[in-house]
């Protein structure tokens, strides 16, 4: 009983997170301006991280935790680099 409930909850939330990622990705393509794309990419990173957490719950393994931690780190670094590029036109001055 609890296995069915948890399985359904994990599947539904994974569908929700994938839909959210899809919406962010369409906006990343559509624009209208560069800053919109950067924010969409950042939000996409966060959704991907949450998706990996739910994947860990589905398989019952804590190995996915490391992957999501690395995604969180890389998402932050890339957003900062892109924001700096928007501000100055170059990443390393």
């Amino acid at each position: 009983m609890s296995a069915t409930l948890l399985g359904a909850a994990v599947t539904i939330s994974q569908l929700m997170l994938v839909t959210a990622m899809g919406l962010y990705m369409t906006h990343m393509v559509r624009g209208p301006r560069a800053q919109d794309r950067v924010v969409a990419l950042d939000a996409c990173y966060v959704s991907a991280m949450l998706l990996l957490i739910t994947l860990g719950m589905r398989t019952g393994s804590t190995l996915y935790f490391e992957a999501s931690a690395i995604i969180a780190l890389l998402g932050f670094a890339s957003t900062v680099a892109l924001a700096k590029f928007l501000m100055r036109g170059e990443v390393i001055e």
Binding site: A9, V10, S13, Y24, A40, L50
Partner: peptide, 22 residues
């Protein structure tokens, strides 16, 4: 299991709402 499912669905729902708002 009910508490875990509720937290999970609420969290994913919030993330989806954020995307819709975006």
């Amino acid at each position: 299991a009910i508490v875990i499912s509720a937290c999970l669905l609420a969290g994913a729902g919030l993330a989806l709402t954020g995307a819709i708002g975006f």
